[in-house]
Amino acid sequence: MNLSFDAKLAQNYKSRSQQIRVMSEAWGSDNLYCPCCGGEKLQRFENNRRVADFFCDECGEEYELKSKGGNIGRKIVDGAYASAIERINCSSNPNLLVLRYCGLIVSELVFVPKFFFVPSVIERRKALSKNARRGGWEGSNILYSKIPPDGRISIIKEGYETDKGFVLESYRRIKPLETKDIKKRGWLLDVLSCVNGVGEEFALKDIYKFSEALKAKHAENNNVEAKIRQQLQLLRDKGFIEFLGGGRYRRL
């Protein structure tokens, strides 16, 4: 991959955000491959498409590219809150590519599969004042730090390209987590986050400690501990944890 933006593309734009958009999208068109199937090149959608920026003409996966200067941080600014929630509940929600640049150099590129998005990772921003041009409009943030590490696959890290085979294998491993049922997705990812918050080996009682937090997120469920056991069994079946017996588990 060529990690440099083409500065000439920004010469006709005064806005820095417009300059970055033009340069980053052109960079993506020239350098991105499909991290889902390994297709050699992503295609660009026509300008002004509402959601996705790229698609793979081999597997049909779509991607939205978001670029940030400096560190990626805990949050990524997104569009309208209502639209973001609607997309998450829709089967056509695109995958996310998060690009970090320093000057005109791409230093990080992270792939977040679409099935790692649930309503709890979308934050509603304060509505614009009534006197604003779009008075009452509510934006959103993607709470990037709440996405489990399994769902943040580095394509470029600290200025170096990750081996493509490793990227594809990382996606293959987490692909079994995909489900279109948003409630099932939320429970599975929430319990996965709990598992990531304990040691490599852990007991069932260690995950039960998260019961109150899980109950707050899933108020409709009146038997949280049974739900935790169900999700641990699913994570075992999908190859993320190993059951050691006697209520003990190991992360794989």
Rank of each mutant, 00 (worst) to 15 (best):
Y63Q: 03
I76S: 06
L96H: 05
G70M: 02
Y101V: 03
A80I: 10
I72W: 01
G79M: 04
G70I: 03
G79K: 08
K75W: 08
V98G: 01
C90G: 12
Y81K: 02
D78M: 15
N93E: 11
L97W: 01
N95W: 00
I72C: 08
G69L: 08
N95F: 00
N71Y: 11
E86T: 13
I72Q: 06
L96G: 04
E62Q: 13
R74D: 15
K68D: 14
A80Q: 11
D78Q: 15
L97N: 00
E86F: 10
L99Q: 02
L97P: 05
R87C: 14
A84K: 04
S92Q: 14
E64C: 05
L96I: 06
N71R: 12
S91V: 12
V98I: 07
R100Q: 08
N93P: 10
A84P: 09
P94W: 02
E62K: 06
K75T: 10
R100D: 05
N95I: 02
N71E: 14
G79Y: 07
V98C: 02
N95P: 09
G70A: 00
G70C: 02
Y81R: 05
I88L: 04
I76Q: 04
A82P: 08
N93Q: 13
E64P: 10
S67T: 12
V77F: 13
E64T: 06
Y63T: 00
K75N: 09
G70K: 00
A80K: 12
G69T: 11
L96T: 03
C90I: 08
S91H: 12
C90M: 12
N93I: 09
A82F: 10
Y63D: 05
D78P: 10
N95C: 04
G79H: 10
I85S: 06
I76C: 07
L65W: 01
A80R: 12
L99A: 04
A84C: 11
V77T: 14
V98T: 03
G69F: 06
A80C: 11
N89A: 15
A80M: 12
I76L: 08
S91P: 10
A82L: 11
V98D: 00
E64N: 11
G79V: 05
E62A: 11
N95M: 00
I85A: 05
G69K: 06
K68L: 15
L65S: 04
I76G: 01
I76M: 06
L99T: 02
A80N: 13
S91M: 13
